[in-house]
């Protein structure tokens, strides 16, 4: 069999595997449902509108920093609200239906985490990268801009959104009623974002800290251990997933 034939054969086998894989099916379904929700659509339209407004208004680096502020304050809330009903909203209905079939609890839970993270990052990165691209294309950005540091800031804020999205799913798996998981999630937002935005307090792991030190990070002058922040934001979803597993496996449906 020639190379093309072998490639076709492998592609068919791969497609067949993906087609029957429970976890991927659940993820794809959840992503479709999340993108299809009214709140998510409203959020995407709103953020696109403001992104265009900032870019056309500021036409410099400030547009990106304003957009990042917008994502930290509003994007985090939206990520929390959307994810806090992901499991509690389905208990007694769709969750029962799925878990009464050949779906394991950890597959169901992991698909929730992964799909919400994918959705939040897709919206965030696609808008930000396009805006940065527009600004760069029309030469609105300074020539001496350190793009590596800029994308590092973008990455940190993105990881912050992943943190909030994961915590929403965690509370959704712990609490049986969506209202309680929403309240718990909003409390976290209040402590991690609102408190540090409106007071003089500092907390290294708050996304607000990244915004406060935007200029310093851009210049490479922020004197902190970046690995700690990265570990916190990357490790948190794994910890939340582990905690969710413990609670979800004790839970009656």
């Amino acid at each position: 069999m020639d190379f093309y034939g072998q490639f076709q054969k492998k592609l068919r086998a791969c497609k067949s595997y993906l087609d029957k894989n429970v976890f991927l099916t659940l993820c794809y379904h959840e992503i479709r449902v999340t993108f299809g929700s009214l709140l998510q659509k409203a959020w995407i339209i709103t953020v696109l509108f403001f992104a265009l407004l900032f870019v056309t208004g500021e036409r410099n680096l400030a547009a990106i920093s304003i957009l990042l502020v917008f994502f930290v304050f509003f994007g985090s809330i939206i990520a929390l609200v959307v994810s806090s009903s992901s499991i509690s909203g389905e208990i007694g209905g769709i969750a029962d239906s799925l878990l009464s079939k050949s779906v394991k609890r950890w597959e169901y839970l992991l698909s929730k985490f992964v799909s919400h993270i994918i959705v939040v990052l897709t919206v965030y990165f696609s808008i930000l990268v396009v805006m940065i691209g527009i600004l760069w294309n029309f030469k609105f950005l300074p020539d001496d801009l350190n793009y590596e540091n800029l994308f590092f800031i973008v990455l940190l804020v993105g990881l912050g959104l992943v943190f909030f999205s994961s915590i929403g799913v965690l509370f959704s798996s712990v609490f049986s009623k969506t209202i309680f998981s929403l309240l718990a999630s909003i409390t976290v937002w209040f402590l991690f974002v609102f408190m540090f935005a409106t007071t003089e307090w500092e907390f290294l792991y708050s996304p607000v800290e990244i915004l406060h030190n935007f200029a310093l990070i851009l210049e490479g002058l922020w004197d902190v251990d970046y690995w700690k922040i990265l570990l916190f934001y990357i490790g948190s979803p794994f910890v939340f997933f582990a905690v969710s597993l413990i609670f979800f496996y004790q839970r009656d449906l």
């Binding site: 087609d19 029957k20 449902v33 299809g36 769709i94 239906s97 079939k101 050949s102 779906v103």
Partner: peptide, 27 residues
């Protein structure tokens, strides 16, 4: 189940296809 609940915006075809994939039934 009693009074089965289905995901929003799904049709019988898409829902059955979804369930079929969950059960690992080849296309």
């Amino acid at each position: 189940p009693t009074n089965p609940i289905f995901p929003d915006k799904m049709t019988p075809i898409t829902y059955l296809d979804f369930i079929g994939k969950i059960f690992g039934i080849p296309k």
